[in-house]
Amino acid sequence: MQLTLHDISHRYGGTTVLDGVSLTVDDGEIVCIVGPSGCGKSTLLRIAGGLEKPDGGAALLSGAAPEGSLNPLTYIFQDFALLPWRTVEGNVSLVLEDHGIAASERAAIIADVLSRTNLSDFARALPRQLSGGMKQRVAIARALAVKPAILLMDEPLSALDSQTRELLMDDLVALWSRERFSACYVTHNLNEAVRLGRRIIVLSRRPGRIRDVVEIDMPLAERVDRLAELELLQRRVWDIMREEAREADREISDVA
């Protein structure tokens, strides 16, 4: 399944936040979107998933969703968005309950995704008992439960400390190697971008336009051993962004 954003423009009040952004997420591809703060990365992702209507352009899907996909476009949020009153399995169960799946089958799906994310021992724990990294694993398990075609990840690791972030990145790489999911991954962290992205789309500061696209052909699984090369790529991306980031930093923001 392919997600295409065609010439997306969007305004909040009188401020243009996105201006003519076009990109495509291909099957099995992780596309990272980076850009200075306030460049409309998250807005773009909300538009991609149908949570917001763009003022101009369109988000388009092509190709059939994989068999059994309950929710082709599935988000993973920065703040995890777990229901604090439900246990880990309850949170996963939530997204299955509206699909008329028999209870036994539902339990099987839950057990499966929890084991794939190494959460089986925490099935009955409440979110407040979990660390940030564990919470995001639950959110990932929840996303896997609906067999998504494309994951829309909005700064999924930004709320975590750097060690946890490393661990989760390893998890994501392992997961991708097995499942070959496609994803649109928004982040402000260039290290994450070069570690996970097949392509890195650099947005300019507000109004967000595509400034440059960096392609990385290195296989995901190898990247952890070739950090020196990645360091160079990261520098390149940073060089593209530096001026934009400096300007963005000096702007007085009136858009949240």
Binding site: N71, T74, Y75, D79, A81, V95, D98, L152
Partner: peptide, 16 residues
Amino acid sequence: RGLIRMGQSFGLGWLS
């Protein structure tokens, strides 16, 4: 609001 948006993003019904 984030939880509500999460619910919508997973295609939960209004009543749910």
